[in-house]
Amino acid sequence: MATTTINRQHARPSTASAPQPGKRHSPYPLWFYLPAAVIYGVLFLVPTVLAFYFSLTRWTIFDSKFIGFDNYVTFFQEPALVSGLWHTLVYAVITSAAKVVLGMLLAVLLTSQIVARGYLRSVVFFPVLVSTIGVGLTFVVLMNPEYGLINNWLSVIGIQGPAWLTDPKWALFSVALVDIWKGVGLATLIYIAGIVSIPAEYFEAAKVDGAGAWDNFRRIILPLARPATVTVILLSLIGGLRSFDLIWAMTRGGPGFTSDVIASVIYKQYQAGFYGLSTAGNVILFLLVIAIIFPLSRFLNRKEVEL
């Protein structure tokens, strides 16, 4: 998007001076683009096109045979995929929504005049810096239903904690909780940037008009932090849709298939040696992310312009 606008801006003066009006002339010679084009082509374009091709084959890594759309048919008949699809959406929506709400609240807290503000800001951001796999494995230990610290603490106050990761009803939700804990720091950071950039005049004017804290939040922060909200929603939704590492480290999609998401289904097909099938799964995931994010992004960004 951004590049095309830049091109057009460059193009306009040059079209005026160029002898052929149909052809846009670039200020740079062609070879100037070459390094980037080669890298883009070899590392991105070629694999993408090959992926579309291999998704139509039965591929054993040693050889491949063209079988048309059979892989897609198999994939959509895979019972784990249907539940995986549903789990993916649930996971993405839960984590994204929680990150928006918690991130906003934490940002409001951390932009107010409190003690040790800088320290608290870094504490909130800290989990983002830790390795996802490390976080996952740590929480597997903490969430152990028999010996885990979390259930031990809960039992102190008289609550019998659930079997977080091994109860099929809780497994996906437990992983989502850890994802929220780990990711809320980034959402908070984006919101802090958004809130700090709101000009102080608004708050001063509101103060003159006698607005309270709630009005400040409702009428100033919430609407004017909208770009931050859009960024947080899009980033965390994309992250949620393609989430894999945390789920794999914590449950491997289990118990059984109860916390399988599309990415882990694809990974398991790949492990089993069904390379064509898992490539087809990746194409589906790619299309799904586009189908959800593209309209959403347009919708959110249009609203921003109207404000």
Binding site: A80, G253, G254, G256, F257, K268, A272, G273
Partner: peptide
């Protein structure tokens, strides 16, 4: 390949 998940 998925027998272990199914038996779980």
């Amino acid at each position: 390949p998925a027998l272990e998940q199914i038996t779980v």
